[in-house]
Structures are given as C-alpha cells and as structure tokens.
C-alpha cells in the first residue's frame, strides 16, 4: 500500500523537472532573440571604441598579426578582420596575444585574451592596458 503514494510523488516530481527544463529552454530562446535585436547597438558602440584606439596601434597590431600568421603582403588585414577568418586557430591566437604583450610591454589577463577575436578588439584592449600602465598607481 505504501508503495503507491511513493510512485505518485515520483511522478509529480519528474513532471516538475520536465516543466523546469521546458522553461529554461524557452528562456534561452528569448535571450538569443534579444541578443540578436541588440546586435546593431553593440556594433555601434564598438565603432565608437574603434575611434579611441589610435590608427598607429591598429596598424601595428595588423603588422604583428600578419607576421605571426605568415600572411603574404597581398592579403589584407582590416581592423574588423577576425583572426579565425585569417586562418588562425586558437593556438595562433594565443601566440598573437603573447607577441602583442611583448611588443607593447603589457600583460594581458587570461580571461581577456580569450575574448580577443579581431584586430580592433586587440587594439582597444592594448590601448586600455597601456594607459593603465602609464597612469600613476
């Protein structure tokens, strides 16, 4: 007799978990939709930052990326170029960030270095770090 209520409880419990799972998945969908609609906004803010990174820095980063990936002179490296689009894998990206560190005399945190995917992002981060380094502590 006692076994019957127990199974009942189990059933309801499993139903609850199912509902929860369903909810989280819809939540995820909603957030994706939001991210998409926000994308243009993100873009414009990135362009504003791109004004703050000096062209020299961007050019230097472009040169370093070019030599690091052994790209020919004819291949174009634009500020918006993604490292992966230039044929870099994640190991190359690590190498690029390490070279940039040495070149600019900075130290990039590990979490930051994994977020860098384009020349522009690298240049922005470098400017920020160089500024920090030069500022009095």
């Amino acid at each position: 007799m006692a076994a019957v209520p127990v199974t009942c409880v189990r059933l309801t419990a499993s139903m609850h978990t199912n509902q929860v799972v369903g909810r989280t998945s819809t939540l995820k969908l909603v957030s994706v939709g939001r991210a998409r609609s926000r994308f243009p906004v993100l873009r414009t803010s990135r362009f504003q930052i791109s004004c703050s990174a000096k062209p020299e820095t961007v050019n230097r980063v472009c040169e370093i990326v070019k030599t690091q990936l052994a790209l020919g002179n004819d291949s174009k490296v634009e500020p918006d170029s993604k490292f992966s689009a230039l044929g870099a894998d994640s190991l190359d990206t690590v190498e690029i960030v390490m070279t940039l560190e040495e070149e600019f005399g900075i130290s990039v945190e590990e979490e930051n270095s994994q977020n860098i995917t384009t020349v522009q992002e690298a240049a922005d981060l470098i400017e920020k770090l160089v500024e920090k380094k030069n500022a009095p502590a």
Binding site: K82, S84, D89, S90, L91, V94, V97, M98, E110, S113, Q114, T117
Partner: peptide
C-alpha cells in the same frame, strides 16, 4: 582538439591554451 572557430571554448580547451601560454 583546439580547432574550434568562432565558438566558445570548452573548459578543457581553455586549460590547453592556458598551458600553452604558460
């Protein structure tokens, strides 16, 4: 194992990259 492009890196991939950086 570390050839993911444009997608988020898994924990173990991050560990490998961190070792490489080290």
């Amino acid at each position: 194992m570390v050839a993911s492009r444009g997608q988020k890196l898994s924990g173990i991939q991050k560990q490998v990259l961190s070792l490489y950086r080290g």
